[in-house]
Nucleic acid binder design. Structure first.
Lengths: 240, 240
DNA sequence: ACAAAAGTGTTGTCTGTACACCCATGC
DNA sequence: GCATGGGTGTACAGACAACACTTTTGT
């Protein structure tokens, strides 16, 4: 019984749960971006020993006066200047030896951002680099597992919600949209089948404007129908 | 930069991360059982003020010398005497006011056990009761959200892995198996379609023995083909 | 012989997937 | 006029869902 959640100590003592140890709680952020071709993640190359030169996720610690979700948002904001970004918890990582320096329990979150919304200035200031997730170098601690789990979560989420659109610029071509899904799912997707499925959802508005860099004919730009978009965000839909 | 994960302090100071607060970390267990008709969860009715008489999940705190996963296994063992049970992390819950008594970050795990493997003696000792998840009373703190999230995770997992079988006795009828899936998914399932699908997986072995309580004709008992079972556990399959 | 649950097939619909040619345009 | 990528439709296969009667046997 000594570890029952609510023991009688709770009542008789002014400080609740006085006999239990406290732990450092970290946040690690897997920040996804899309450059039009590959799915990328934002990593920092450590400038200091130990682990100097090795790659790491961006992170921080949970403060006393903030929720864990708030901590994740704060960490993202401090490192990228971005707020109101889609973030979702991946998992809690609590192995004893996961951080070689101290016992740290870490909670991973992933975020999806438009790769161009993160300025190069800010990126340099934090020694951050976009890395192609297909060719990931070794990462410190258990960060590679976090990235793999986050990719899995992203896949699941994108399959039922239009969150992937946050990775694209405001206007985009069908080819870019398809390339995004191919990058997330790491499989080729049939052009005609994809177009049909996306159109059937009625979330796209075709613009007059064409993208003319890649072909003589040019391909139409699209934007989201915001109303339909938010509806699908809430109610869900089967994308893939 | 003050919250960068690995600051220079890490190098110059003997204690790493000295400037960050520590937190109590709790484990809350959603323990699923199946009585042949309904999906149940194991809850305790609090014997003490405050929140006396209210329902709570079973839980405990994470110690210094154990991983979070180990803590979950230990808490389950201390409360039920069971080990080697399927457990999976649900999520980390970190709102500031989630526990009214202290700032506690909690990590929820769910477990699936055979409802008869938990003795009545042990259950009484911990004031634990199996509660039908369809008619859940109000729970303390954010436990109702944890239960809802755990049910969702269970559904997802059961759809691709045969873990639901851990909820059944060693030998069971097709009717019981179907009732289990109906209870987990909270929808009626067509008898013929279900039978066909289950048989097509080749994970069942038909016994000579029949269950004769429910009908004159009697229904055959089945057991798992352990080999095939573990194969599907690893590689996955689409159940539903 | 009858009551009560067990066991068993077929059909239509939908969804997913494979596949190839014409179009519009800049040079 | 030709080279380049953009845009579009059809047909087949497999999965899923709906549906009802016969079998067994204890009383």
């Amino acid at each position: 019984m000594r570890n029952r959640y609510y023991s009688s100590k709770m009542i008789s003592q002014p400080l609740p749960y006085p006999n239990f140890p406290k732990h450092l709680i970290a946040i690690d952020c897997i920040i996804f971006g899309f450059d039009g071709l590959d799915l990328k993640g934002l990593f920092i190359k450590r400038q200091l020993e130990p682990e100097k030169g090795n790659w790491s996720l961006m992170g921080g610690f949970v403060h006393e006066n903030e929720s864990v979700d708030q901590a994740a948002e704060r960490v993202l904001y401090e490192l990228t200047g971005l707020s109101n970004v889609f973030m979702e918890q991946v998992k809690c990582y609590g192995n004893l030896d996961r951080d070689a320096h101290a016992r740290v329990v870490s909670i991973a979150y992933y975020a999806v951002i438009n790769i161009h919304s993160y300025s190069e200035v800010e990126r340099d200031a934090h020694h951050a680099i976009w890395v192609d997730l297909q060719n990931l170098p070794p990462l410190i601690f258990d960060h590679a597992i976090m990235v793999a789990d986050a990719k899995e979560k992203l896949k699941e989420n994108v399959a039922y919600h239009p969150i992937g659109f946050a990775l694209l610029p405001p206007k985009f071509t069908l080819k870019q949209l398809r390339a995004l899904y191919e990058a997330i799912y790491e499989v080729p997707i049939d052009k005609r089948n994809f177009t049909r499925k996306i159109f059937s959802m009625n979330i796209l508005k075709k613009l007059e404007e064409k993208e003319k860099k890649n072909s003589r004919k040019g391909s139409f730009y699209f934007v989201f129908d915001e109303e339909k978009y938010h509806q699908l965000l809430v109610q869900g839909i089967k994308f893939m």
